[in-house]
Amino acid sequence: AVSDRLIGRKSVVMEAISPQNSGLVKVDGETWRATSGTVLDVGEEVSVKAIEGVKLVVEKLE
């Protein structure tokens, strides 16, 4: 599936994300709604860990 190619990809937070609120990330020039178990600020680099419905699950790059 097209979405499977996103797992493991680097992306950049475009709208802040917290455990309570989804935000936005940009992956390969496309904007996606995303969630995370931690707070992520605009501009942080993250990695796509999973896809749940139409949202990406991301975490901060170490």
Results as ranks from 00 to 15, higher is better:
A1S: 13
A1F: 12
V2P: 15
V2H: 12
V2S: 12
V2I: 13
S3W: 08
S3P: 14
R5K: 10
R5I: 08
R5H: 11
R5T: 09
L6N: 03
L6E: 02
I7Q: 04
I7G: 02
I7T: 05
G8W: 00
G8Q: 01
G8H: 04
R9V: 06
R9L: 10
R9D: 02
K10C: 14
S11T: 12
V12W: 04
V13D: 02
M14K: 06
M14R: 04
E15L: 08
E15G: 05
E15Q: 12
E15H: 06
A16W: 10
A16S: 09
A16Y: 08
I17A: 02
S18E: 05
S18G: 10
P19I: 05
Q20H: 12
Q20R: 11
Q20S: 12
Q20F: 10
N21D: 08
N21K: 15
S22Y: 07
G23T: 01
G23F: 02
G23C: 01
L24D: 02
L24M: 10
L24V: 11
K26V: 13
K26F: 14
V27L: 12
D28C: 15
D28G: 08
D28Y: 04
G29S: 07
E30Y: 08
E30C: 13
E30T: 07
E30Q: 10
R33P: 15
R33T: 14
A34Y: 00
A34D: 08
A34V: 05
A34G: 07
T35D: 09
T35W: 02
S36I: 02
G37W: 11
T38Y: 10
V39M: 11
V39F: 15
V39H: 14
L40R: 00
L40S: 02
D41C: 14
V42Y: 05
V42G: 02
V42M: 06
G43T: 02
E44T: 12
E45R: 09
E45F: 13
V48N: 01
V48A: 00
K49L: 12
K49S: 08
A50E: 06
I51W: 06
E52Q: 12
E52C: 14
G53W: 00
G53N: 05
V54P: 10
V54D: 15
L56G: 03
L56E: 03
L56S: 03
V57Y: 08
V57H: 07
V57R: 08
V57S: 04
V57M: 06
V58R: 00
V58G: 02
V58P: 03
E59R: 01
K60W: 05
K60Y: 06
K60R: 14
L61Q: 08
E62N: 11
